[in-house]
Design a protein around this nucleic acid. Sequence first.
DNA 1: GAATACATACATTCGTGTATGTATGTAAAT
DNA 2: ATTTACATACATACACGAATGTATGTATTC
Lengths: 222, 222
Amino acid sequence: MARRTKEAAAETRNRLLDTAEQVFIDKGVSRTSLDDIAAAAGVTRGAIYWHFKNKSDLFEAMMQRMKLPLEELMVRATEENADDPFASLRARSLTILKRLAIDTQWQRVSEICRFKVEYVDEMETYLRKRHLECRNSSLLRIEDTMREGMKRGQLSAAIDPKLSAVGLYALVDGLINNWLLDRKYLSLSKSAAPAIDAYLRGLLPRAGDKPAARRKTKKKRA
Amino acid sequence: MARRTKEAAAETRNRLLDTAEQVFIDKGVSRTSLDDIAAAAGVTRGAIYWHFKNKSDLFEAMMQRMKLPLEELMVRATEENADDPFASLRARSLTILKRLAIDTQWQRVSEICRFKVEYVDEMETYLRKRHLECRNSSLLRIEDTMREGMKRGQLSAAIDPKLSAVGLYALVDGLINNWLLDRKYLSLSKSAAPAIDAYLRGLLPRAGDKPAARRKTKKKRA
DNA sequence: GAATACATACATTCGTGTATGTATGTAAAT
DNA sequence: ATTTACATACATACACGAATGTATGTATTC
């Protein structure tokens, strides 16, 4: 075969990435040879080496096509959710969990990142950076939202917004990974809301709270 | 070299497993050759093939030596914690998280299971089974504990004990994995308690609860 | 006609599994 | 207490396949 049109080439490239997602799930990234991907996509390794430098380059391209669920959690959080911080955190969490339950590409790539790739060498560098950047920005935005909720008296003045953000992030992450471990056992759409709600209820104002308007006094305990 | 005494042989076997833990972390399971492990342990592949069938057999032996953190979460839960279910769930969660913060072998093996091995073929069969058995038994015991707490009025009568158990399990799992991702960023011992406490507070009795003594009536909503 | 989008062919490396070698421990027979 | 015989605990050597990267071929498209 020979040169194809530009759109056809782009189509080949995308087909390679789509195919790689499935083969990676079946065989794992490291046990997948480039010939496995090429054959499954109906081309040869020549096509892969034309579009990509090597396997980890292809892997990165596959990842760059999309945002992961947790990367969508607090996206555009600064311009929205000004009115009801508490409801916003709940809605955002449930939104990505419910979407994950039906978005098959999210499912595939999430499963690869959790179970089908080893975090070593270039993969580790890339994946760790990506996860850390996601977590850092998400935590900052969750924290901001919680501070806003505290200011409005929606959330207890006694909570630590930073640590509370960590808990919510870990909970959503844990729900995702546990669902991915066995999708038939527990329904994401059913288990998500009770778990998120329970955690958020635990941040509500409670009996022994100081009123609301304590500023940045350094005192931790009265 | 030639035949060694029985204790020396058992020592070699253990040294191979210890060494494998470290090499797996450094290079990932699939990129680790048996020669890598043998050389790092000061022996040759002959020793490995004497003690183990192949790499996945060695991996399983490495895993079988120990229990994972989540496998210790609800261990011996039936005979203990009869008196204070709520405090028991909190104490058990914090116990394994705090131990993980200092138990370097737990850290190594947990990191391998999360980041350094691909869940495929025999590895997948083994690891999935192990995780699922852990989760199933843990969830049942958490659920039982929560039911006991509900009966005593410690926990809200409105919660679903099964789904609430899933949330707690996911939260602990998420805290572990997020700490493993970057051990320097967040301190397990500091972030664990606030997160667990917030979630458990969300299960406490609240204003609109039906009193306490609703039995096994099938009605879900009044 | 030059660059493109691949296919094909080749050399090389690397890891595995197995076969074989070998020196020592161990138990029984003497 | 030796000797004998065999199993043990590895080390060494080899054959094989599998995967990679690159070099080269080739038919289009622009």
